[in-house]
């Protein structure tokens, strides 16, 4: 570009003198201005389009899904027979400019493990199994079937055993249900570290 401009200047010098030069500078100025403005506007558009790639969570939004433990329910509410139950995960999520109050950000399945054993230790986190209710196959919500004692997804007929694992025969999901960390606090309060994971991949990759 630069070199061509130089030769242009040279030419105009030779051919027409100051008038042509003024014209040339005017044209260059105008051209640069228009090009610059267009580049800036276009750059703005591209930056805007790519914004989700580098957007930081707003301050205090840590509780919207990743990292923090959230209260889900109490231990007594889990059926004694080992049936898995779906619970909403309630928090105060932020969506762009809106902060919601006590709104569900997803669902978890909770289930008593070692069901039927006595005595029941309500403070032992290993007594409770927790999974994200989203199917790791394509992201639909799975259901627990009491008769079959398994998890079933209506979208693509993925099936998981009661412990969240894949059944021996072929399942549609590339990995087992996404288990979640459990903490028991106070007098049998179940707290879950709620996370979303990349669906459709064999490895369980948390989304940030």
């Amino acid at each position: 570009m630069e070199s061509r401009e130089k030769t242009d200047i040279g030419k105009s010098n030779g051919a027409g003198g100051p008038a042509t030069r003024r014209k040339f500078f005017g044209a260059t100025l105008l051209g640069t201005g228009v090009l610059g403005a267009a580049a800036a506007a276009f750059g703005g558009l591209i930056t805007g389009l790519l914004q989700p790639l580098h957007r930081r969570q707003p301050a205090g939004a840590d509780d919207t899904g990743t990292g923090a433990f959230l209260f889900v329910t109490r231990f007594e509410n889990l059926p004694e027979d080992g049936t898995a139950m779906r619970f909403p995960v309630i928090t105060d999520p932020v969506d762009a400019w809106t902060r919601y109050q006590s709104r569900s950000i997803g669902n978890v399945f909770l289930r008593r493990v070692k069901a039927g054993t006595e005595p029941v230790d309500r403070m032992d986190p290993s007594m409770v199994a927790a999974w994200n209710a989203r199917c790791p196959h394509a992201g639909c919500t799975v259901n627990f079937r009491r008769q079959e004692m398994d998890f079933f997804c209506h979208c693509h007929e993925s099936r998981f055993l009661a412990d969240g694992s894949l059944p021996g025969e072929r399942s549609h999901s590339p990995r087992p249900l996404d288990s979640l960390e459990v903490q028991i606090r106070g007098d049998g309060e179940i707290w879950i570290r709620f996370q979303q994971f990349q669906v459709g991949t064999p490895e369980k990759k948390p989304l940030t």
Partner: peptide, 27 residues
């Protein structure tokens, strides 16, 4: 979008650009 983000190479980036925000919302 979930399926898009599971695609190899550019999948996750494409899904993010298309969705605007995760979880889906105003944006």
């Amino acid at each position: 979008l979930d399926i898009t983000s599971s695609l190899p190479v550019a999948g996750p980036v494409m899904a993010k650009i298309l969705s605007g925000s995760e979880p889906l919302g105003h944006l």
